[in-house]
């Protein structure tokens, strides 16, 4: 009597099991790695209609963020300045430069420059700039080192856990109000000492300013 199944089939169940395990692991690993804002958003760096460099304006020239984003302390969103704000200097600096043609045209006609928005939370998230900036949360915490970027890049994931991490431990990020727009600022150049001072002063600021650790859904969603 010949074999109904050849001998190699003895190993088949084991092989199928191992194979399924490998494929399953690969799919889970891929989903873990790719299906997250850490992959989807970080690194987004669209081409802008005007090659405006934050590195030149904010770092090299030392301009304050609020020279252009002048309503950020009062408004829930951080405004893009009108082209007129650019023209305060560029009516004299690089006055005929072709790279600024769109800015001049916009200032003259009122037609907006089609800047591409980079940091975009979902429409059901009600993030308020003024309340964060007004309670010692620096621009750098969510936007990364903007003052070093020639082209703005989405540097942090801005996922829900990103928000919650800070909402649970605001003392780890909070800083004095006059240092909010100084993105390079640290308590100390020594990382250990910086951490110690951050903890020391952070907890005091959280207590003094009555900073709430809001974790309820309606803090951000409504």
């Amino acid at each position: 009597m010949s074999d109904v199944f050849p001998k190699w089939t003895n190993q088949l169940p084991l092989k199928i099991l191992i194979g399924a395990g490998l494929v399953g692991s690969a799919v889970v690993a891929g989903a873990w790695y790719y299906l997250t804002p850490k992959y989807a958003r970080v690194g987004y760096q669209p081409l802008q209609p005007v090659a405006f460099s934050h590195a030149i304006h904010a770092d090299q020239l030392g301009m304050d963020c609020r020279y252009c984003h002048n309503a950020v302390e009062k408004s829930w969103y951080s405004n893009i300045p009108a082209a007129g704000t650019c023209m305060n200097c560029h009516n004299q600096v690089l006055k005929d430069d072709p790279r600024l043609a769109l800015v001049r045209e916009s200032a003259a006609s009122g037609k907006p420059i089609p800047w591409v928005q980079i940091h975009k939370v979902p429409d059901f998230v009600y993030f308020n700039h003024s309340v964060h900036v007004g309670r010692g949360i620096s621009c750098v915490e969510c936007h990364g080192p903007i003052h070093k970027m020639d082209e703005v890049r989405h540097a942090k994931e801005l996922s829900m856990t990103f928000c919650l991490d800070c909402h649970r431990h605001p003392a780890a990020k909070i800083r004095p109000l006059d240092k909010v727009t100084q993105l390079d600022w640290k308590w100390s150049q020594d990382p250990k000492e910086n951490e110690r001072l951050q903890k020391l002063h952070g907890e005091k600021m959280v207590a003094d300013w009555k900073v709430e650790s809001l974790e309820s859904c309606s803090a951000c969603h409504r």
Binding site: Y33, Y34, L35, P37, K38, Y39, A40, R41, V42, G43, Y44, Q45, P46, L47, P122, D123, F124, R153, H154
Partner: peptide
Amino acid sequence: LGFRGDLKRQPPLEIFPDMKRQ
């Protein structure tokens, strides 16, 4: 797909739109 943090010129893909853009 590349790696996390790679330069991307295209806006982030939103696979499950839910009510993200209203």
